[in-house]
Deep mutational scan, measured.
Amino acid sequence: SEEEEEEWRRAKERGEEIIILGILWKPNDEEAERRIKEALRRV
């Protein structure tokens, strides 16, 4: 969703871990980033 995407962007800017759509994303975690982008597209 729009607000999840916004939340994720803010976490990326701050360089902090975030759990979004049930996926743990850490800074520079390209695999998780790809999965999150896929999940955001499906929503």
Rank of each mutant, 00 (worst) to 15 (best):
E5S: 09
E13G: 04
L40C: 00
P27G: 03
K26E: 05
E17T: 12
L21F: 12
D29Q: 04
I20N: 01
A11N: 04
R9W: 10
E38M: 03
L40A: 02
A32T: 07
E31G: 05
A39F: 06
I18V: 11
E5L: 14
E13I: 09
E38N: 05
I23S: 00
R9C: 00
E31D: 13
R35Y: 04
I18P: 00
K37I: 15
L40S: 00
A39H: 04
G15T: 03
A32D: 01
I23V: 07
K37P: 00
K37E: 15
E33H: 04
K26V: 13
A11K: 05
I36D: 02
E13S: 10
R34C: 08
D29S: 05
I23E: 01
E30F: 11
R42M: 12
R10F: 07
E4W: 15
K37S: 10
W25K: 00
E30N: 09
K37D: 12
R10A: 12
R9T: 09
W8G: 02
S1E: 14
L21A: 09
R41C: 15
R9D: 07
R35E: 08
E5W: 14
L24I: 08
G15P: 01
R14C: 07
R34S: 10
L40Q: 02
A32P: 00
G15N: 08
R10Q: 10
R10W: 08
R42Q: 14
I23D: 00
R10T: 08
E4A: 15
N28V: 03
K26P: 05
E5A: 10
E17Q: 11
I20K: 01
G22T: 05
I18K: 07
D29A: 03
R35N: 06
E2L: 15
I18T: 08
I36F: 05
K37W: 14
D29N: 06
N28W: 11
G15V: 04
I20R: 01
R34A: 14
S1G: 15
E30V: 11
E33F: 06
G15W: 06
P27L: 02
E4I: 15
E13Q: 11
E17F: 07
G22Y: 07
W25H: 01
S1Q: 12
E38I: 05
E33V: 04
I23W: 00
R9A: 09
E31R: 04
D29I: 00
V43F: 14
I20D: 00
E33K: 02
K12F: 13
E16K: 09
D29P: 03
L24F: 08
W8I: 06
L21K: 06
A11D: 02
E38W: 02
S1F: 15
W8P: 03
R14I: 09
W8V: 04
P27C: 05
E5Q: 08
K37F: 12
E31T: 07
A11M: 06
K37G: 07
R42P: 07
K26W: 08
A11Y: 08
E30M: 13
L21P: 00
K12Y: 12
